[in-house]
Design a protein around this nucleic acid. Structure first.
Lengths: 349, 349
DNA sequence: GAGTAGATTTGAATCGTTCTAATTTCGCCT
DNA sequence: AGGCGAAATTAGAACGATTCAAATCTACTC
C-alpha cells in the first residue's frame, strides 16, 4: 500500500503518464472515458490516478478547449430570503449540469454591480444570471459584460435601452397581475380605502405592481389617493419606519394596504403596532414573494407565491438552453404568481 | 472613431500587441502596471486595449503563475437566513480582496457535500470555507479536497479524526457559553422546568449547546429530565411538528425551553399554539443566532446574537491570512455570542 | 567616436490540458 | 513471411497569459 504524500507538488497528467509508462495523451483519453483506449491500459491508468491522488485541472482544460464550466450569479441582495432561495435554486440546477456558480453580490448599488461584473467576467463564465440593482443601467452592464457572454435578467428590467445586437433573455414575475389579484381580494373583502405601500417607483418591478393595484382600484370604481402611496426601501426596517406616513394625510385613513413585497409587509405589521393598529384585526395587509416567513408570521401573511427556488432553477435552465443554442432568438418568460390567502387580509371592522 | 464589433472572436494579448506594434510581453507588463514600460508606450497600449475591448483572461494567467483567484464556499443550507448572511459576509470580504467566490450548497447531506467539494476543487480554488453538513466526516472531506488546499471550518466540527498533517483553521461559535447564558436567564426569570428543544445530538453544535444548558441547570440545582430533551431537524416546519412531544411525558410539563436555534424557536412558537399555549405569555422561549426575523416576530425572540455577516467576513479574513502565510500554525477562533433579551422569555405565570 | 550604465523591449519557454495527424502494434489471411 | 486493416498509442502544437534572460536603445562620459 502506497502512502499518499500529505504534501508536495500538484499532480499532473505528466506524473500519471510517467508513473505507468504511457503517454500524456492516453491518460487524457482515459480521463474522458474515451472508448479508444484498451481495457487493460485503462485499468492501469485508473489505478495510478487513484494512487497519486490526481485532481483534474478544469481551468487548463477550459483554456485549451475554449469552453467554460462556470456561470456567474449576481444578486442585488443575498441576505434577502427571496434571493437566497433563488440563488439556492440556481446553484442546484447549475451544479447538476456540471457548472460551478461564481457568486457576486451588488448590495443594490449599480456601481458595485459594475465592479463585481467586471471582476467576474475575467474568470470567463459561460454566462451570467443577473438580478439587477435598483438603478442599474443597460448601457453600463453591457460595457461590463461585453457581447460575448449571454445574460439572463431576473426580476427587474434595466434602465435605458439595450442595443439590438445584445439579445438577452429575461425571467420576470407577473407583477402587474399579482398586485391586481391582491387588490381585488382586498376589495372583495370589503375594503374601499386601500393603500400601496413600499418600494421605490424608479424600479420596474415596483411600477408594475403599482400599475396592477391601480387597475383593480379603477375597475372597481375606487379612488387612488396620493397620500395612499408611501415609498420605502424594500427592507423590513425601513418599512416599519415609514408606516406612520399612511395615517398622516388629512383625507380618510386606509383600512388596508397592498405591499410591495413580504419584507415590507412584515415591516408594516410592526409599524402598525406603534400606531395602535394590528394587522389581521383592524388593518388588512398583503405581501408579495411568499418567503418562508410569510406563513409563519403572526398573523400569517396573505401574499403572492413566486416560488423563488423554482424561479432560480428556471433561470438556470434558461441560461443552459442558451449555451446549448447561442443563436436561438432571445425570449422573455413571465412567471405566473399565485395568491395565497392567509390571516393578514381580514375584512374591515 | 472605431466601432466596436458587437460580436466576434475573443481578444487576446496577441491582438493588442499586433494592433499597436509591440510585443505580447510589453502588453502584459502594461496590464500589470509594471514601472518598466515607457510612458508613451503605455499610453498607446492602453488606448488599444480600450479600443478593442480587451478582457483579461484570469484563468490563463493563473495557470501560468500557478496561483488562484478564487475561494470555494460550501454551505449546508443557503436558504437559511443565518447562512445567507454568512455567505454575504464571506463574499463581501473576498470580493474586496480580489477573489471570486465559488458557491456550493450541500443541502445538509454529507454525500452531496462530497460531490460538491469534488467538483469545486477541480476549479482550483485557493482555499475552501466549509460549513459542514450535519453528518459530514473528516476523512471523507479530506479525501475530496486533498491536502493542498487550505480549509476554514465554520460552525460545526467534522465527525471522526483529522490526520495531524492537515492543519485546518476553525471558526466556531461559543455554543456552550451561549446556551448557558440563555438558561441562566430563564432560571433568573423564575423557571424551574426548562426543556432543551430541537437539533440533532449527533451534530457538534447541538451537543455543545446542550452541554451549556445542562451546566446551568446543574449549577442551579435543577433537574434535567429526559422527556425535556426533544430532538428535531433544525427547520421551522419540523420544530412545529415536534412541539407536542414536550408535553407528552407523565412528569411535570416544562414552562420554558432553550431552543437549538432561532428557526426551531420560531417553529416552536407556532407549535405551542396548537397545544393551547402562547410563547411570551405562558411559556418562555430562547433561540440562537439572532436572524433578522428574531426581532420582528411576535413575540420578539430572546436569543443569542452571532452576527452571521461579521462571522462571514471573519471566516474570509482567516482564509486570506492563511493564504498569505501557509506555514502559520492553524488556529481555532471561538466567536463570542451575546444574549439579547426580548419578549419571548417571560417569567412563569 | 567608442564605451557604458540604464532604460525599454522582446523571444522563447512554460503552466496543464486537448486534439489532430501520424505512428505503432496486433491479429489474421494468403 | 509478408501484407493489411483495425485498434491503440503518441508526438507536438495549440489555448492565453507570465517571466527570465537576452537584445536593443538611449543618453552620457571621456
Amino acid at each position: 500500500m502506497e502512502s499518499q504524500t500529505p504534501v508536495g507538488r500538484k499532480i499532473t497528467l505528466n506524473d500519471i503518464a510517467a508513473g505507468c509508462g504511457v503517454s500524456r495523451a492516453t491518460v487524457s483519453l482515459v480521463l474522458r472515458g474515451s472508448p479508444l483506449v484498451n481495457k487493460v491500459t485503462r485499468a492501469r491508468v485508473e489505478e495510478e490516478l487513484r494512487r497519486q491522488g490526481y485532481v483534474y485541472n478544469r481551468a487548463a482544460a477550459n483554456l485549451r478547449r475554449r469552453t467554460s464550466s462556470s456561470v456567474a450569479l449576481v444578486i442585488n441582495e443575498l441576505a434577502n430570503p427571496f434571493f437566497a432561495e433563488f440563488a439556492a435554486g440556481v446553484d442546484e440546477t447549475l451544479g447538476t449540469a456540471g457548472f460551478v456558480t461564481l457568486l457576486g453580490s451588488s448590495g443594490d448599488s449599480a456601481e458595485r454591480e459594475h465592479a463585481v461584473l467586471g471582476s467576474l467576467i475575467e474568470h470567463g463564465p459561460g454566462g451570467i444570471i443577473l438580478s439587477p440593482a435598483e438603478d442599474s443601467e443597460a448601457r453600463k452592464v453591457l460595457a461590463a459584460v461585453g457581447t460575448h457572454t449571454p445574460v439572463v435578467l431576473f426580476n427587474r428590467e434595466l434602465g435605458g435601452e439595450l442595443p439590438e445586437y445584445a439579445h438577452w433573455d429575461r425571467l420576470m414575475l407577473d407583477n402587474e397581475r399579482g398586485a391586481r389579484q391582491a387588490t381585488e381580494h382586498l376589495i372583495k373583502q370589503g375594503h374601499r380605502h386601500i393603500a400601496f405601500f413600499g418600494g421605490h417607483d424608479h424600479a420596474s418591478s415596483t411600477r408594475e405592481r403599482h400599475a396592477g393595484y391601480a387597475q383593480a382600484m379603477q375597475a372597481a370604481g375606487l379612488p387612488v389617493e396620493a397620500q395612499w402611496r408611501v415609498q420605502s426601501t424594500p427592507t423590513r426596517i425601513d418599512a416599519a419606519r415609514a408606516a406612520g406616513e399612511l395615517f398622516e394625510g388629512k383625507g380618510s385613513a386606509p383600512t388596508a394596504a397592498v405591499c410591495y413585497n413580504d419584507a415590507v409587509a412584515l415591516g408594516l405589521m410592526l409599524g402598525l403596532h406603534q400606531h395602535g393598529r394590528q394587522a389581521g384585526r383592524d388593518f388588512a395587509i398583503t405581501g408579495f414573494d411568499d418567503i418562508s416567513e410569510a406563513s409563519m408570521s403572526m398573523p400569517s401573511l396573505t401574499t403572492l407565491s413566486t416560488a423563488p427556488r423554482a424561479r432560480g432553477r428556471q433561470a438556470a435552465e434558461m441560461l443552459l438552453a442558451r449555451l446549448r443554442d447561442p443563436q436561438a432568438p432571445s425570449g422573455t418568460i413571465i412567471a405566473p404568481v399565485e395568491l395565497v390567502v392567509r390571516e393578514s387580509s381580514c375584512p374591515p371592522l
